[in-house]
Amino acid sequence: MKEEIRNSRILVIDDQPANTEILANLLNIKGYTNVSVINDSTKALEAIAQLSPDLLLLDLMMPEISGFDIMQHLKDNGSLNGWMEILVLTADATRESKQKALAGGANDFIVKPFDLIEVELRIKNLLFTNYLLKQLKNQNQILEEKIKERTAELVNANQALISSNDALREIAWTQSHIVRAPLARLLGLVTLIQTEGEDLEINPKEILKHIGNSATELDGVIRDITNKAYTANNITN
């Protein structure tokens, strides 16, 4: 038997000390280490809240507060969350009683007088189911945490991409603006020559000087862009 199952918290609630004694002894013999017993059902809810048992062995017919009352109360305050198994103990073997118990929140039932082999097998099965459910819950939690971590990483990576995209857009804009200035001068000069023909108001040598200066400026800007692109490629490769 797995240690986790052997160390499961088990609470036995029955107003008959003879019954609780039989069950406690059986559980001890079978190696369960964490067994508590209550005969006064008025203290049941307090004990459940305190111990937070993995398995409740619950007698149905008890004075003052019955097993049904306890299940109803657990249901009402949201304690029947699926992480605590309830095995009801009942002398009433009628179909209605079993159905009522199962509908009330019980996971299984045992009919008195106890068949100890059956009792032990049902307890073992319920604790194993409970163990698997809790494992699953833990794994889900781990997965959820991993998803959260991965999502946060993706959000950060996305933010970084947006920032670098903005920066690239800014660089592209600045470069195109710098390119556009000498180009605009060249276009203006070309139009001037085209439309004025022989009647140029400005000295042709002066125009050629401006064309040369603008072309040199343009060449410088383009070389600068090429160098930056080359550096950027080297960095990314």
Partner: peptide, 15 residues
């Protein structure tokens, strides 16, 4: 601040 543009623009405006 670019004298060439002042010349080119003036010419275009007048013409």
């Amino acid at each position: 601040d670019d004298e060439l543009f002042l010349v080119l623009n003036k010419r275009e405006l007048v013409k």
